[in-house]
Amino acid sequence: MINKLQKLMDALSKELPGVLAVAVVTVEDGLSIAEVSRRKGIETAAASAYLASIVKSNGKAIGLLADDEVTDDILITTSRYHFIIRHTPDQPFFIFVMTTKDEWLGKARLLMKRFELELSRFSAELIEQFRQASD
């Protein structure tokens, strides 16, 4: 299963030239399940743990501000990079993509949405795999 996810993340990283890192991450503990880094020095696994706290905090804040809304994505922009996080509330995982600021943001979002649909097909198997590992 993890090999399938890794192949999925490899494919995602190759779709856009400005992608620097991608990962599938557990929301609960920030564990990076599958990841690709296209630049040395990017600590995708370590960053994933911090990004999980952002996903959890975002869910709580949106619940307080607009309880009937669901976040499409979380965008963090710096002077050189875009960090895009997609998480659907019914999934225990999220997708994280880091791109250069020159990358077309709309295309990155559409691509993530497409891959998110593919990830949801693996979701039940992944949940079961993680349940068995924690027992």
Rank of each mutant, 00 (worst) to 15 (best):
M1C: 03
I2T: 14
N3W: 03
K4G: 03
K4L: 06
L5S: 03
K7E: 13
K7V: 14
M9H: 01
D10Q: 14
D10I: 12
D10N: 14
A11L: 07
A11S: 13
A11I: 05
L12Q: 05
S13F: 01
K14G: 08
E15N: 12
E15P: 00
P17W: 13
G18K: 07
G18L: 06
L20Y: 05
L20C: 03
A21H: 12
V22A: 06
A23Y: 01
A23M: 00
A23V: 01
V24D: 08
V24E: 11
V24K: 12
V25M: 15
V25C: 09
T26H: 04
D29W: 09
G30E: 14
L31G: 07
L31E: 10
S32Y: 04
S32Q: 03
I33Q: 14
A34T: 06
A34R: 11
E35R: 10
E35Q: 15
V36N: 05
R39E: 09
R39H: 15
R39P: 03
K40H: 09
K40L: 15
G41K: 03
I42V: 02
I42M: 00
A45E: 07
A45K: 09
A45F: 07
A46G: 08
A46S: 09
A47D: 00
A47H: 08
A47F: 13
S48G: 02
S48A: 03
L51D: 02
L51W: 12
A52C: 02
I54M: 15
V55I: 00
V55A: 00
K56M: 07
G59F: 15
A61I: 06
I62R: 05
I62H: 04
L64I: 07
L64C: 09
L65V: 08
L65N: 05
D67E: 10
V70P: 06
T71E: 12
D72M: 08
D72L: 11
D72W: 06
D73C: 15
D73F: 10
D73Y: 13
I76S: 06
T77D: 13
T78L: 08
T78Q: 07
T78Y: 04
S79H: 14
R80K: 14
R80S: 15
Y81K: 15
F83A: 01
I84P: 08
I84S: 02
I85G: 05
I85V: 10
R86T: 02
H87V: 09
H87F: 10
D90R: 03
Q91C: 12
P92R: 01
P92T: 02
P92C: 01
F94H: 04
V97N: 00
T100Q: 06
K101W: 02
E103N: 14
E103G: 07
L105S: 09
L105D: 14
L105G: 13
G106Q: 05
G106W: 00
G106P: 01
G106A: 06
K107E: 08
A108Y: 13
A108K: 08
R109G: 12
R109I: 13
R109E: 11
L110Q: 09
L111M: 10
M112T: 06
R114I: 10
R114L: 12
F115T: 09
F115A: 13
R121K: 12
R121I: 15
R121Y: 07
F122I: 05
F122C: 05
F122L: 06
S123C: 04
S123I: 01
A124L: 15
E125T: 05
L126S: 02
I127W: 14
I127E: 14
E128T: 04
E128K: 07
F130W: 02
R131D: 12
Q132I: 11
A133V: 08
D135H: 13
D135Q: 12
